[in-house]
Amino acid sequence: MASLWQYANPQKFVQTTGAVLPALAVLTALALIAGLVWGFFFTPDDFRQGSTVKIIYLHVPAALMAINAWLMMLVASLIWLVRRHHVSALAARAAAPVGLTMTVIALLTGAIWGQPMWGTWWAWDPRLTSFLILGLFYLGYIALWAAIEDPDAAADLTAVLCMVGSVFAVLSRYAVNFWNQGLHQGASLSMDAEENVADVFYFPLLVCIAGFVLLFVTLVLLRTRTEIRARRIKALLARERMA
């Protein structure tokens, strides 16, 4: 594990990510374009949902990343609380706007998909409601970081908020199983062949999910580098004022 902790050094983190980011960006673009083009142009309509099934290639990966981004923030926040590595706190901060965007995409595409299929844009269904609350937690998390001047205090308080919000990240995923009610169906991706989507939709969906995961990783690395530099600017300006 010693090799992992060396990236807690901001300089080492910036140096290493600088080397891998171009390749990651190319991979991300390839996976996203391949998955979306495959899904949009080369998959058939569903016998029940018609062409709206094509929305699955955006809705499911975005929802998946919205939940997993929060869980990544939780892990990074716990590392900050336990080991006080600044890079992990900054990585959590960097991930929040990405997670929020994924949440907004999942909610909007879900509403657009729900209108023709369910006859309504929105329902106070357990999964939809917990997802909306997760989105509000993202907003609160971003606002809290911006509102507190002292970066260590901000990292501490946002880490606590992140732990509380994790309840809704988990609920967003499992609400359908916990409460057997509401409009939203169960998992689209499942080990259960009966429940899983048909292969013709499944494989392009996997490529899209890979694209969204890569996009998340790329953006978080890029944004963490920015946060590290912004922190350094703050420190240098404070030193200049003291001199």
């Binding site: 062409s51 094509k54 929305i55 907004v104 909007l108 209108q115």
Partner: peptide
């Protein structure tokens, strides 16, 4: 592809998502 009567919904979902992703990047 022919999206039939759901063309607006499908194109709308793609347009909104792509705009948000491009803005984020």
């Amino acid at each position: 592809p022919d999206l039939g009567k759901y063309a607006g919904a499908v194109m709308g979902a793609y347009a909104v998502s792509i705009v948000l992703l491009v803005l984020l990047v």
